[in-house]
Design a protein around this nucleic acid. Structure first.
Lengths: 382, 382
DNA sequence: TTGTAGGCGTTATCAC
DNA sequence: GTGATAACGCCTACAA
């Protein structure tokens, strides 16, 4: 509404916006809310109502008869401002429909209140759950989430660079194929301030990794498999990124050999994708003599487990768990569907996301971020 | 690196950054790329490499011996700048590791190159596919996508407001429960500049809706159902938002009555969620006499169809399609899994996303945005 | 508690 | 084709 170059003419603003207010019912609505005690907090009220754009703090200041900086304080919690000033400001803001401009705020404060979320495997349905939680929880703490779909490592580097151009407060990686080189690159030239690996372990020194205790979790699965009396497990591994993801595989194999005094087999699917897992299981089992067949497929996660179940059932015409059992990891969407009834391990993503918010706030952290406990969920697949 | 308040001291910058460049291998790398003709475009090169933050256009200008505005032109395509100046600028930029600040650019130009993507149903796996395409394609056109998870209509209003605070260039709605009131609110006070309803029809005048031709698509499905000789269809409908989504249902019912001279039944699941659909189908079929049972469940989309198949198969112990057939809509992830083998309709989302990018660019549009053609995909479920 | 100066890094516009 | 001026709207730091 205001043209570039025109000086602020706040004397006219009141009239000018009264019209819009009526349209949007903004100020009347606010008074009504206050009267009916639905809220006394203008911020909350405004966050539920429509406003006019292009009203600046100056406009509000003029109408309220205070300085621009006082207006600012009214919108910042824990700011030292008198109740009287605050009320004046909020009234004026409500009338004009003012809301602070986050772009300008970000530029001035060097905090964008934005994070980038990098994902490279949209075929894993678990990502849907992670996105749902992360975006919802981060938003309650004031952060917006830029979702970035990276198709390969070069692309991820590009995305990280772009994130730095946007001055994001952090980049969060929840993909499965990002390697340590990317982390180093992203941090080496401080393109991104905070690099967070979410939902899996990373040993990279300058990276914050938030995840559940994979060792404890996988041991629970292993113990369950042993307790149920399975004899010939085959571990289905995911992407073999340099150091990160061998944890579950190693844990299972170690536990098995410790308990059973014999080695368990494993094979590498390489991608967290049900279809790839399906093909892989068909190929691997197809090449085996029947007497060498596993009686259980221990999968690194649910995406692989689902493909495995499909293969056992539809390609080989066998029954799960009667002929071959299957376990997963994540408790992804569809894990509880009657098609899979997957025995799996649930990570406490909500808790983890809350911790992430604390990390973004720069709080000192007492607890370890890599040892969240989830729960073993026993269904009928194993 | 540069401290607030310190004046630009570009004479030192060259030395200062040489160190970082070596670390990041930035300039050497760039020269190497140019020599090996992997690129002559610094922008492309930089977008694939790490850079130093906090170098401003002024720094680059000083090093290149030109003005700040010339630096800017070098980074803007179609800007009038001599090849010589451009080269100088890009060399300097490469050496310093400069990349334009998008926050500042957004503030100055009133274009954030950001869009908000609002979703309210993360239990529909189709959303995974939409997010994958939208984020990937928008990014190639220069837009970042802020993913917002809205839990109800109030929350969506809040999200739209927040989007306006971020000055997003557009808000894209791909949820299933947003009603017209939200659209009006969002636009009424011009909180958001462009409101785009993606993947479904909206009759709201100030809204741009990009979607496939539901009528033609549903008619294809109806014709397929009729051609296969099914006699008693039951239409499973999704959310009954005011005007938008009855399109598929109405189309099917109309086609059926036109062709068969009798009415088809329908029932409303209300949510695009396989679990809800499962429960609903169990309840509805359970209450029916066997002789009134449908022989095909025509579902408004795949999320519902999947739940329906599960119910038929696991709750009632019947075979799909032998006892009861099922059709879907969307060709969502898992639609092609051996569990479902769903007969469905694929929307051309990539094309639609490309069109969306054109809309964001403000291009004049010749073609209708609501009549994209997809394809009927016939699998074994019907 | 409140007001002031200066700066954040870019872009629109216009003069040369 | 290039340089200069004046925003963009807010925040930090400090003074009153």
């Amino acid at each position: 509404m205001r043209k570039r170059g025109s000086s602020p003419h706040t004397t006219h603003l009141r009239d000018k916006f009264t019209q819009y207010n009526r349209e949007a019912g903004f100020y009347d609505c606010y008074l009504y809310w206050v009267n009916t005690a639905q809220t006394t907090d203008i911020c909350e009220f405004m966050s539920r109502n429509t406003v006019i754009h292009s009203v600046t703090a100056d406009d509000v200041a003029a109408l309220a008869g205070v300085s621009r900086w006082t207006v600012n304080r009214a919108f910042k919690k824990d700011a030292s401002i008198s109740l009287k000033s605050k009320k004046k400001v909020l009234d004026a803001a409500a009338e004009l429909g003012y809301l602070p401009d986050l772009l300008a705020a970000g530029l001035a404060s060097d905090k964008s209140s934005l994070v980038s979320l990098l994902i490279d495997d949209f075929s894993n349905p678990y990502k849907l759950l992670m996105m749902e939680r992360l975006t919802r929880i981060l938003r309650t703490h004031g952060w917006g989430t830029i979702l970035v779909n990276t198709v390969n490592n070069d692309d991820a580097t590009d995305a990280l660079l772009n994130a730095s151009q946007r001055r994001v407060d952090a980049a969060i990686l929840i993909g499965s194929r990002y390697d340590e080189a990317i982390l180093t690159a992203a941090l080496g030239a401080r393109a991104v301030r905070k690099l967070i690996v979410f939902g899996r372990y990373s040993s990279h020194p300058d990276t914050i990794s938030i995840g559940c205790d994979d060792v404890s979790a996988m041991n629970q699965i292993a113990d369950h498999v042993i307790a149920r009396g399975y004899q010939r497990p085959l571990f289905l591994a995911g992407p073999q990124t340099p150091s990160a993801h061998l944890l579950r595989q190693d844990t299972f194999l170690k536990r098995w050999s410790n308990q059973k005094q014999e080695k368990a087999d494993y094979t590498t699917v390489g991608v967290y994708d049900p279809k790839a897992a399906y093909e892989h299981v068909c190929r691997v089992l197809g090449a085996l003599n029947k007497n060498q067949w596993p009686d259980i497929l221990v999968s690194e996660n649910d995406a692989i487990a689902m493909g495995a179940i499909d293969a056992v059932r539809y390609h080989f015409g066998l029954k799960v768990p009667h002929d071959i059992a299957v376990t997963g990891f994540d408790n992804a969407p569809f894990a509880d569907s009657p098609n899979y009834e997957l025995t799996t391990y649930r990570q406490p993503i909500s808790e983890m996301a809350e911790q992430l918010a604390e990390v973004l706030k720069g709080r000192q952290l007492t607890q370890k971020l890599n040892h969240f406990k989830g729960e073993l969920i026993i269904r009928t697949s194993a």
